[in-house]
Simulated assay, not measured.
Amino acid sequence: MKRKYLYLLIGSIILPTLLILLCNLVIEIAARGRTYSEISEIKKNKVGLVLGTSKKLTDGSPNPYYTFRIHATVQLYEAGKIKFVLVSGDNGSIYYNEPTAFKNDLVALGIPEESIFLDYAGFRTLDSMVRAKEVFGLSEVTVISQEFHNERAIYIAQKKGLYAVGFNARDIKGSQGFKVQFREYFARVKVFLDLLLNTQPKFYGEKIEIK
């Protein structure tokens, strides 16, 4: 009976935990040396790809992840590290439009409207990275998000034939940050499931040249 409970423990807790940790480690190693927090250290790239998120939290307060990605994008542009911005996010309904929200705030902070391109079908990080290559014709890109998100995006890009580096927007501490980081462990497992199943973006569409 004790052996039965031991096998149950291994199968239901230990093995899944090891799998989660392994997926996390593989992605961390793949992105090592390819994420940057200092403007002076990152190379120039034609396009900065900012990964979308909601502007407001569910309680109506500002989303700091959004705010910090906006600031990081402006930093890169003003430093001449990127020439164009590609905003990739969810535009799932007339009431929710991540790319347009980003664009409006980036323009308000001084980035010319003609330097900003919008990907309205970036429903997931996988979609954003694949579409950057297949729809927008990019061979390399600077991803702009928090470090944990950049690492996952870089790994996906690598597997899809797109060379990516990441510029790390400021991260969030405390309980809010912990919740997001905790979910990230499971998002990284989903990366490997998507690769195994050859999951494709929800939409492709006509090619758009950034120039």
Rank of each mutant, 00 (worst) to 15 (best):
K179N: 12
L9F: 15
K159R: 10
P99C: 07
G48S: 04
I210Y: 11
Y65D: 12
D194S: 08
K173C: 06
T35P: 08
G110M: 13
Y65G: 09
I172D: 06
P62F: 13
F117D: 08
P201M: 04
L197H: 07
S12D: 00
I13G: 10
S145W: 01
L138M: 14
E28M: 07
E134S: 15
L162I: 07
G205R: 10
K44F: 13
K207E: 12
G174S: 10
F102Q: 12
T100V: 11
Y66L: 03
K179H: 14
S61R: 15
A121Q: 01
L193D: 06
N150I: 07
I116L: 05
G92N: 11
N97I: 12
G60Y: 04
F192R: 07
L21I: 00
L22G: 08
G110R: 14
F192S: 05
F117I: 00
E38I: 08
V130F: 06
L18W: 04
V87F: 05
L25W: 00
Q158L: 09
N63A: 10
Q181E: 14
G60K: 07
L196I: 08
D171H: 10
Q181D: 15
A121H: 02
I39D: 00
Y96R: 04
V85H: 02
K179F: 13
I42E: 06
I144A: 02
K211L: 14
R3H: 09
E140I: 03
F102S: 08
L76Q: 07
K103Q: 14
T142V: 15
A79K: 00
T53D: 04
K44V: 03
V141I: 13
P16E: 05
V107H: 02
I172Y: 09
D90R: 11
Y66H: 08
G122P: 05
I210A: 09
N91Y: 14
L126H: 12
E41C: 05
N91P: 02
L162W: 09
D194Y: 06
V26C: 02
K179C: 03
G137K: 12
L193G: 13
Y120N: 06
L18V: 11
S88E: 05
Y5N: 15
K207C: 12
V50G: 00
A153M: 00
V85Q: 01
G110P: 12
L196W: 13
G166I: 15
F178R: 15
A79I: 02
L25A: 07
L9V: 06
L8K: 09
